[in-house]
Amino acid sequence: MAKFAVSLKARLILQNHGRLLLLKQTKPNGGNYTLVGGTIERKEYAARTLIRESWEEAGIRLEKNDLELVHVLHKRSSKEHRIVLYFRAYHYKGSPESKELEKFENVEWWPLKELPKNLTGTVRHVLKAYNAGQLYSDMEK
């Protein structure tokens, strides 16, 4: 049986007054819009990852009680299986700003009904599944 790598990630769906918080990637990183989040480190749980990444990437503070698991994505390629846990939050502290300027040129609020055309395909897939009430989806990488 062939071995393959597995990676675990956590992402944030942060909503405020009908808007969604998105990070705008720098051109060398794709130039698309994506969600706050990252890889779950060896000694972390998913909620802790999201709390850390939210501060590191967007300068906002979250509490564990503010996070609710709303979607799980299984993304697969020939070399890797990636499991991404998506958490929703409505409450946060701080003013969103890009704190990793080498990766993200800006943090922006977008109306849920008018999301940018250059939203990553994965985020677009997940938001469609999430809005349809699906807790789980999968896709090829």
Rank of each mutant, 00 (worst) to 15 (best):
A2Y: 12
A2L: 13
A2P: 15
K3H: 15
F4Y: 15
A5L: 15
A5F: 13
S7V: 13
S7G: 05
A10E: 13
L12P: 03
L12H: 05
L14H: 07
Q15P: 05
N16E: 14
H17F: 07
H17E: 15
R19F: 05
R19V: 06
R19M: 11
L20A: 01
L22K: 06
K27E: 15
N29D: 03
G30M: 02
G30H: 02
G30F: 01
G30Q: 00
G31E: 00
N32S: 14
N32E: 15
Y33Q: 05
T34N: 04
T34H: 01
T34E: 03
T34Q: 04
L35M: 02
V36E: 01
V36L: 03
V36F: 00
V36P: 08
G37M: 02
G38C: 06
T39P: 11
I40F: 00
I40V: 15
I40L: 05
E41V: 04
R42P: 10
Y45E: 15
A46M: 01
A47E: 15
A47H: 12
A47Y: 08
A47N: 11
R48K: 11
T49G: 00
T49A: 03
L50Y: 04
R52P: 11
E53F: 00
E56S: 08
E56Y: 07
A58T: 01
A58R: 06
G59W: 03
I60N: 00
R61P: 01
R61M: 06
K64S: 13
N65M: 08
N65L: 05
D66A: 10
L67V: 03
L67C: 10
L67I: 04
E68L: 14
L69F: 07
L69Q: 14
L69V: 00
V72M: 10
L73M: 12
H74D: 10
H74N: 12
H74G: 04
K75R: 15
K75H: 11
R76I: 13
S77A: 09
S78H: 10
R82T: 02
V84W: 01
V84Q: 06
V84R: 02
L85Q: 07
F87H: 07
A89M: 07
A89D: 00
Y90P: 02
Y90G: 14
H91K: 15
H91C: 13
Y92Q: 07
K93D: 12
S95L: 13
S95C: 09
E97I: 13
S98H: 04
S98Q: 05
K99Q: 13
E100G: 00
E100T: 12
L101Q: 06
L101F: 05
E102H: 11
K103Y: 12
F104P: 13
F104S: 01
F104N: 05
E105H: 07
V107A: 11
E108H: 10
E108M: 12
W109P: 09
W110R: 10
W110K: 12
P111C: 04
P111F: 04
P111R: 05
K113M: 12
P116I: 00
T120F: 10
G121Q: 09
G121E: 12
T122F: 07
V123H: 11
V123I: 08
R124D: 11
H125D: 00
V126W: 04
V126G: 06
L127M: 07
K128R: 11
N131W: 06
A132D: 06
A132G: 00
G133F: 04
G133R: 05
Q134K: 14
Y136L: 02
Y136W: 11
S137C: 02
D138I: 03
D138M: 02
M139G: 03
E140D: 10
E140H: 09
